[in-house]
């Protein structure tokens, strides 16, 4: 473990808590893409199946349960509890165009061709594009509430911090995982225009307006 990965995991946890808290407090999921949340739940479910087969540390096990529980809780709030506030009209990204190519790529490019490893690889590829429905929804509505942009900033920062972790681990342990690194760079690049808008606008108290 290193400071980059620890702060990355914390940024990830903070993002999830910001979102859950926002939906719970405002009793509304307006402006939130349920599709992205479904993709995240799929990412954690396929990635953390190794909870039953391998133990890394109490921290690792605890965080996996937290990410699984919070992602399903978020889906429950969006599609069950506050479904009346779910914005069907703007959450229209075709997620099958993200799931199927990720699965196909995982079957073609992986470290080992076995069930858990292919699912892990699928979760890595899917996570890199899982935010697209949310970014698409923000661009369609043309704006995002500031709390949603804080959520996106924390979520985008988590994988950016993981890139620093991968550099650190390569420099100190000679450890690297090219699949995770390439997907992580793609994932972080997808946030770049948002990061720019967040830093130039939201931090100056303006509303986040994405070019529609």
């Amino acid at each position: 473990m290193n400071i980059f990965r620890l702060t990355g995991d914390l940024a990830h946890l903070i993002a999830i808590i910001i979102l859950l808290h926002k939906i719970w407090k405002s009793r509304s999921c307006a402006g939130i893409s349920g599709k992205s949340q479904v993709l995240f739940a799929l990412v954690y479910t396929t990635r953390y199946l190794d909870l039953v087969t391998s133990y890394v540390s109490i921290y690792n096990t605890f965080m996996k349960f937290v990410f699984l529980a919070t992602s399903y809780a978020t889906i429950y709030l969006i599609y069950v509890k506050f479904k009346a506030t779910y914005d069907h009209n703007h959450d229209t990204f075709r997620i099958e165009f993200l799931i199927l190519p990720s699965l196909a790529l995982a079957l073609l490019i992986n470290h080992y061709f076995n069930f858990l490893e292919v699912l892990w690889t699928f979760s890595i590829y899917l996570e890199s594009v899982a935010i697209l429905p949310q970014l698409f929804m923000v661009s369609k509505t043309g704006e995002a509430e500031s709390i949603t942009s804080h959520y996106l900033f924390a979520l985008g920062s988590y994988r950016a911090l993981y890139i620093l972790n991968w550099i650190y681990r390569y420099a100190t342990e000679g450890h690297y995982d090219l699949i995770a690194i390439v997907a992580g760079v793609v994932q972080t690049v997808l946030y770049c225009d948002f990061f720019y808008l967040y830093i130039t606008k939201v931090l100056k108290g303006k509303k986040l307006q994405l070019p529609a």
Binding site: H12, D50, V56, H111, A180
Partner: peptide, 10 residues
């Protein structure tokens, strides 16, 4: 390469 075939990152 992997840490003994398991992934040690979240």
């Amino acid at each position: 390469g992997h840490l003994g075939g398991t992934h040690d990152e979240l």
